[in-house]
Write a protein that binds this DNA or RNA. Sequence first.
DNA 1: AAAAACAACGCAAACGTTTGATTAATTTTG
DNA 2: CAAAATTAATCAAACGTTTGCGTTGTTTTT
Lengths: 338, 338
Amino acid sequence: MQSKPTTIKEIARILNISPSSVSRGLHDHPSIGAVTREKIKQLAKSLNYEPNNAAILFQKGKTYTIGVILPELSEHFFSIAISAIEDEAIKKNYTVIFAQSHDNYEQEVKLVEKMKNQRVDGLLVSISKDTSKFDHFEKLNSFNIPVVFFDRIPPFKNVHYVACSLESATIKAVNYLLKKGHRSIGMINGPTTLYASEERKDGYMQAITFNRLKFDPSLVVNCDLTEEGTIDAANQFLNHKRKPTAIVAFNDYVALFLIKYFKKLNVINDFDVVSYANLPIISYLDNSPVASVEQYPYLQGQKAANILLDLIHSPNSENQAYYNTIVESDLIVNEVKE
Amino acid sequence: MQSKPTTIKEIARILNISPSSVSRGLHDHPSIGAVTREKIKQLAKSLNYEPNNAAILFQKGKTYTIGVILPELSEHFFSIAISAIEDEAIKKNYTVIFAQSHDNYEQEVKLVEKMKNQRVDGLLVSISKDTSKFDHFEKLNSFNIPVVFFDRIPPFKNVHYVACSLESATIKAVNYLLKKGHRSIGMINGPTTLYASEERKDGYMQAITFNRLKFDPSLVVNCDLTEEGTIDAANQFLNHKRKPTAIVAFNDYVALFLIKYFKKLNVINDFDVVSYANLPIISYLDNSPVASVEQYPYLQGQKAANILLDLIHSPNSENQAYYNTIVESDLIVNEVKE
DNA sequence: AAAAACAACGCAAACGTTTGATTAATTTTG
DNA sequence: CAAAATTAATCAAACGTTTGCGTTGTTTTT
């Protein structure tokens, strides 16, 4: 049995009043008498009336939808972040639609376009690895669609963003290793194209020089973040004239490859590894990193979502002020397991 | 500068033709002359015309949107599955909206309602842990919104679903352990309310009896899947008169708790653990499960999405036939690490 | 040369809801 | 008691697009 959803019109017809009165009645508009209002509400309830969202959205030109574009939903960090975003959105009665760029610039451009066509009220974006142009986002300005970047953000300030300061996190990490007595610390960094690589390197250098040590560029090696790349980097350290005793890995995946390789070579005990958290259970490893930089994906998602909702609700004045929110990351030292 | 998006009307006005012609021109309708068509397309392009989706959706009563309701997006299994769903949806030009039940029945009911109001063209659902009534889904029938369940499915056949046969997977797992020489095998099962628990138990029993062994009910203990519950279960095994030498854990989380506990007690080497895969890197653990039941979340998501899209496109005839798709799960034996 | 077919386009309604302007009925005020 | 104010409801337009049907004017068929 094919039931057509009840409409305002139908309620109006049955009650012999106009659709506008029904609409106003349902919205507690003052110009509708109490008796009529109640009759309307009762009938609406008994007929299981549900507003036709598509019609409302169309009428209002608002969709109560926020779009999320991120590189890979299956990455733990992003799955947590978007989970937070959805939690926040639903509180304010917004719906979340999302799409994955799969770290592809062209795909990202297409998705931004698609989101715009879908008339999202705002956009949350974590940019793809090979995004270096940002016109596709700037276009959204003229359509008054606010954008908030999170985690993977563009390298300039005149946008809204939420991110961790990887620089300060790296300082903490290196300081920790220095305090543990390490004097030669290696870093497996990402590709130079990544802003995140720059931040890590800066943090590394600052911590080293602040502690009046000499910065040795050959101890910071760039890596494509694959298992092979990691092994190459590891070999450079193993053959280094000042063989490091501790290593800062770009992320948990790199750390995993590294630990695996070191275990194979049976040199795992010669190194303390510090990493940036991606994998929820890495601390369960037997030779897990001694410390981990926690980037609080849930918090980042939450803040980004709230900022976006703020922007959506704020009068579309010239927002000269950009939200540049930094979520402090913490160095989580792995307790020794009993 | 606030640009209002270009509309068909505007194009029509400029070209001095009717909106309907513009619409038809843009859609390559045969009754529009080639010259006019090209003029329309050119102007549309130069004005950056983008169809107003909200209007189209409203007009057509279709949203080209599929809804996904799942318990926890941050769970690895689901993040992979929804990632697959999005990948399939975007191929067919559908958009995905999603929401999390957080394993709460009431929330799930609300979300189904919300999705219906959003007029999704179809729904993909993995049901919450404490869902035992299914009226909220049946209601969708009368609105002609097809539903495909995946992974966590209702315990009856007259719905569309995609799932793994945990029963056959469990048989494989227990057989593997039996072949390895184990004669007393414990199982940490989930709550009895879960269909998945029943399946595991059935598989366990079948494998045991097929191998002409006696089924000992006290070797299958139910557990609330928390760390404490797991420890309780472990203790039951440790004190068992026929102390098992192998254990089938309900999932990787349980396996993790179990291994942690066994390591603490220094009895880890007395047990072979088999688990059901949730955690991507569990095999990197030093005392990782000897084998893992892989449930292919990507494949499940993919199949579920395609079935749903099929149903959406199929004439809304009486679909007497229900898709009951079983994705064969495999027992992945962890290679010995060099 | 009339009838039929066709090509190219316009007209207008429809989808469901909201909202500013308007009207009619009732009540309050000086 | 007439004028003003209040209350309760209606009217009609609007949002952008699609689509069945009707209307031209031109070409083809008999």
